[in-house]
Design a protein around this nucleic acid. Structure first.
Lengths: 239, 239
DNA sequence: ACAAAAGTGTTCGCTATACACCCATGG
DNA sequence: CCATGGGTGTATAGCGAACACTTTTGT
């Protein structure tokens, strides 16, 4: 923790990378950008970029997302630090340490390229070919983390619009986990957790065009889930 | 992700900070170093230091720990990335981005100062006065994370010597969580989780000087706990 | 004989699961 | 009147908390 000479060492670049998820047509999508320059020109990658001298990684993440993908309304964006990837050689040009984030967006406006990115697009999760740098791994880590966090936090409401039905919330869980849930039991669990959701009095909305109109709910104030909402037990679950 | 000029921006320094925990006399201790230089000269801080150009943050963490605290045997050390602290102004000298780690050590050899550190010492958790920089917060975050991870991972065995009794493992949980657990139930839960611990055939050891000798166990191969070992429910647990 | 610590057995209440059933709406 | 999705009720199995009890050692 000494060394006042700022230029004594080979400089590090500090960047942010974002794995931004959203739901479109009941399928999980990821936001990717097409690289305009070498290395990996023409390949798809996670949006991200350099942290400026006066910002934190979190601030940089929000700024880069807006710049590169044209998403103007990032107010509803849930940002969560994932981990930092620091292996030498991650970037062939120079030493780059990247702080990765997982992010959730409720309704996804169309994205378009900007600044460094030739193009930006929502891609169904799993269909993306090999990404630039170590972004495949970052994306996989982010997906794992989001799935795990769904069990013991209220994170799922970050995928929902301001007012939503319990059926919609259940679909969020089912899509992210890739499993089916029992509707009556899901209902009870959610409503039994104080602060998870709060009812919008009197409001109701048709969902599938048919059927009984569903009551509307807002995200509650709670952030943790006690007891947790465990996904159906598949025995040999990986670490 | 462009910008080939390595010196175009004000350089960032990348450091690691470690919150290393151990158990001494059934109390949780943290490893701290006394700063020899300004800023915060004479104040206690978490061990850590600059990442070198050719190492990852994980490698740097192990190296700095050995250098600063004289702990030679860091083979049994469990390292876990916590998060990265990147707020501008964390360090009054320059822009420092720090990758923080939580670490667990089974039996703690005495520590002594080295390289940058005037002194290094194991301090009972909670008794440390205000630390340098934002290290109070990092330490608190690390403690929260370790406590939470105890619930759904086998992490607790990282606090134990190679062979240990179930009573010792239980004490680890009780110390870290600050609660008491029911011995018969704890036993059953641990033994019911495949791969958590494996019995050492025939081995037994006296623990408290008196009483029946306890059977010995080794850490198993499992890393995750299903079902989790939840700490006693205190209702309004913070996020 | 007693204290202390390990280990076993058993009861009881809760909750998660599974599934049957009723309600409201559009075609 | 039927299909579709929302919402309520209920029986049952399994698990976890609580606690009584046995075993083995040192003093």
């Amino acid at each position: 923790m000494d060394g006042y000479d700022k230029y004594a060492h080979e400089p590090f670049a500090v960047t942010v990378d974002l794995a931004v998820f959203t739901l479109r047509d009941a399928a999980l999508h990821v936001l990717l950008v097409e690289r305009g320059q070498e290395p990996y020109a023409g390949r798809w990658a996670l949006p991200g970029g350099f942290v400026q001298p006066d910002e934190s990684a979190e601030t940089a993440a929000r700024r880069e997302l807006a710049e590169e993908t044209g998403l103007s309304d990032v107010s509803g964006l849930h940002l969560e630090q994932l981990r930092t990837y620091s292996e030498p050689g991650r970037d062939p040009r120079m030493r780059v340490v990247s702080v990765a984030f997982a992010a959730l967006l409720p309704d996804a406006p169309e994205a378009h390229g900007g600044s460094d990115a030739a193009d930006a697009r929502w891609v169904p999760h799993g269909t993306a070919g090999p990404l630039a740098f170590d972004h495949d791994r970052i994306l996989a880590d982010a997906h794992d983390r989001v799935g795990a966090k769904f069990e013991y936090t209220c994170l799922a409401t970050a995928f929902c619009p301001p007012e939503f039905t319990l059926g919609e919330l259940q679909q969020v869980y089912e899509t992210v986990w890739g499993t089916e849930l029992d509707r009556p039991n899901f209902r009870r669990k959610v409503l039994a957790t104080p602060g998870f959701v709060e009812a919008v009095p009197g409001a109701a909305r048709l969902t599938g065009g048919r059927g009984k109109p569903a009551a509307l709910y807002r995200a509650g104030t709670a952030t943790a889930l006690h007891p947790p909402l465990l996904r159906p037990t598949r025995e040999g679950r990986p670490a």
